[in-house]
């Protein structure tokens, strides 16, 4: 990619919901994606939303973007064709979005299907993107426990932003009110498979109980299923020497695998 041209990044944003109250808000991961985009020098940032024109979208505007293109879609529609069409018209260099929606099925398929339809690679769980030396982009990917992996990708590509990426900046009321929700007319495609989905309030998942494999009496099965092993208080070292205490700690650390020892693996 040439450096002269101003590169375009499009952030796909959705309407999220607060996990406790269920009230509409900016989606956490989508706003992190926008934060990532706003922090990339040399890119012009545009926002794209497919769905209803919810006032919650203004929270993205409050982060300092002038407008959002809203592809109005009924709630029963499959938004991917509309997004793909808009992106084809727009031909950005980079598309960012969250990993998983906060409402609906939230399978996380949208970015994959968009990337597939555009024929672009998809890079998941991104925390930062910077320009590499040889025209590629260096992408840091979040691994569990704060670890990171470096990937090299050429534009154009689609990236989903990890929840471990930098927290989104505050959404300010004034800019949010002044920004524009620009409706863009697109056809909508119905999503027939959605009829099979049956939504219900989340049930508490059954707690796994340890079944006694060879239990012969009810008492034993009961005990195996209910005994709490760790909660009865741990080992307490009082009289040992400092060195013995330290080695007790060290043994536990090694056993838990948090201290790297040259063990065969």
């Amino acid at each position: 990619m040439s450096l002269d041209k101003s590169l375009k990044v499009r952030v796909l944003v959705s309407v999220g919901q607060h996990p406790k109250s269920g009230r509409e808000r900016r989606a956490d991961q989508d706003s992190r994606a926008l934060e990532l985009a706003l922090g990339m020098p040399g890119f012009s940032v545009g926002l794209l939303h497919a769905g209803s024109e919810s006032p919650a979208l203004r929270e993205y505007l409050g982060m300092g973007v002038k407008a959002i293109d809203v592809l109005k879609q009924p709630s029963s529609a499959d938004v991917v064709p509309a997004l793909v069409q808009a992106l084809r018209n727009d031909s950005p260099d980079l598309v960012l979005c969250g990993t998983r929606a906060e409402t609906g099925e939230a399978s996380g398929m949208t970015p994959y299907r968009v990337a597939n339809a555009l024929g672009w690679p998809l890079v998941p769980a991104v925390v930062s993107i910077s320009r590499g030396s040889d025209g590629t982009y260096e992408v840091l990917q979040a691994l569990p426990r704060g670890q990171r992996r470096l990937l090299k990708v050429r534009t154009p590509f689609v990236a989903t932003v990890d929840p471990a990426a930098a927290e989104a900046r505050q959404s300010a009321f004034g800019p949010a009110q002044r920004g524009q929700l620009q409706a863009v007319a697109v056809a909508s495609v119905a999503d027939p498979a959605a009829n099979d989905l049956e939504f219900s309030p989340a049930r508490k998942r059954p707690k796994r109980i340890a079944a006694a494999r060879k239990a012969t009496t009810a008492a034993e099965r009961f005990k195996a299923a209910t005994v709490k092993s760790a909660s009865k208080g741990g080992q307490v070292l009082v009289k040992e020497t400092a060195a013995e205490k330290a080695s007790a700690i060290l043994n536990l650390l090694v056993a838990e695998g948090v201290i790297a020892v040259d063990s065969p693996s």
Partner: peptide, 17 residues
């Protein structure tokens, strides 16, 4: 600072959200 700049420090942003 809060309504126009969105720079409430500390846990301000989270609390307001």
């Amino acid at each position: 600072l809060t309504l126009e700049k969105g720079t409430t420090p500390g846990k301000g942003s989270e609390t307001l959200q």
